[in-house]
Design a binder for these strands. Sequence first.
DNA 1: CGGGGGATTGACGTAGCTCAACCCGAGTGG
DNA 2: CCACTCGGGTTGAGCTACGTCAATCCCCCG
Lengths: 268, 268
Amino acid sequence: MERDITHDVRPETCFNTRMEQRRRPTDHLPIRPQHCTPTVLRAVLRRTPFLAPLSETDIARVAEEFQQRHYEAGTVIQRAGEMATRLAVIAAGTVKIMRPTLDGQDVVLDILAPGDFFGSLAQLGEPVYTETAIAQTDCCILAITPEQFRSLLERYPAVAIATLELVAGRLQSANRTIEQLSAHPVEQRVAATLLNLAERLGRREEDGIVIETPLSRQDLADMTGAKVETVSRIMSEFRRLDLVGGGRRWIVVRDLEGLRDMVTEAAV
Amino acid sequence: MERDITHDVRPETCFNTRMEQRRRPTDHLPIRPQHCTPTVLRAVLRRTPFLAPLSETDIARVAEEFQQRHYEAGTVIQRAGEMATRLAVIAAGTVKIMRPTLDGQDVVLDILAPGDFFGSLAQLGEPVYTETAIAQTDCCILAITPEQFRSLLERYPAVAIATLELVAGRLQSANRTIEQLSAHPVEQRVAATLLNLAERLGRREEDGIVIETPLSRQDLADMTGAKVETVSRIMSEFRRLDLVGGGRRWIVVRDLEGLRDMVTEAAV
DNA sequence: CGGGGGATTGACGTAGCTCAACCCGAGTGG
DNA sequence: CCACTCGGGTTGAGCTACGTCAATCCCCCG
């Protein structure tokens, strides 16, 4: 079930200069701090959606303000409840955004990819993080303070508008999730979640679309508001129908159409 | 309570000139189109959060662009799937924002009050409304086109930032809802929803905090991702515990603390 | 080779859905 | 003024999707 596949080298996120053997599709080459060179940093920012309106020279100027930092897979980047001191942009790696509930279970709101941002959006209202962020893979994070971000918005109104559009998009997607949780059974929520992940984190391979982040059944359960066992049963069923494949902490989507039918089906 | 622009009688925003008998706390005096005079319109916009950064003269100029329109209780203001041609601000009344699902059930995302906005945020991506808006009471709505709105954001960067903060706030609240739906039983979701409504639409009376919008059990069910019968049972229980009161399509919160305990309790 | 973390599977319990009957208060029309 | 109706609300009696608990498996790593 597991095969060695060579990593395809995407220029904008490739911090890894050496080719190495991989065991699993999601075993990425390690992302090392020293790979976040100023040049690379600028390249990443240039491709970051909310900075898209900026010119090359503006990007260069803005890049100065960002602090780069490296996180190993599994470590906490920010914790809900802590003072919110940074707005972070993902340069490389994937990050799990979650809310811990009072009774100990975790709710995963999203898995973010390079170019996405998280953290404190503005110093209004909440001066603390409302979500916990965990490095799902090794990560390279660029961060500025909320004050710097605000001043950035003031200096470049186009950035404010771009950010507004991004946040509006996030709100849309949150609303879709609310609809899912309110109205659809777990099976459909899992199918919808897989489709969404495939679209945002998927890499096409001969075998199907590999979701490029290590994802456990528990993660999937926390994303769909279900329990591990339930998700496991559903994934077994999906595998039986040859809709998905995968192994320990990784998933490949084999049949997009089939999953889409899953999502729609109950609309009988 | 700062929120309440229209229903308490303040000289500059009063749409209702006569005092009349009320049957129920939510039987509001009718809001008539002719009450949305230019002066009143400007007064409303002055108090609208996302225009807060503007000066008096700017407000006056901006006010010119808004089209005012009246909707009777129960009528559709916009329908999900239609071409998105307007961004709307509520001048008076309350509006129910919902997503109809393929299989016919409705998911209510929010109930909005005067000063809140809805509709098309930007002409990016989705050119259609993703939500349906229904006048919960008689309503006076001010609207501009997405193009006008965008130009407004460009002319007044402070407005863009204010809007960003508002949308970020909505995202926060959507995330809270996702947490609720994922992790907490219906009883707690109902309690949390009532608290939220009380805070945003509540008017203090001798008897408790009256939620100033007609709200059926069905509405409450659609807001909590539950079924009418379940919500009805829970509300009966809450009434038995003297946490809430009310009648046909109206609710009064009697015991805030008690409800808060309800929300927290299961965190045993 | 042993240990541990993830995944799977089964047996069983229950929160909340479904279906169905019934109530009640407010308009409406005679 | 009453009678009728109708939309909303309540309550009960099953049913089921999903959670809970527990055993087992199976990689993967030391």
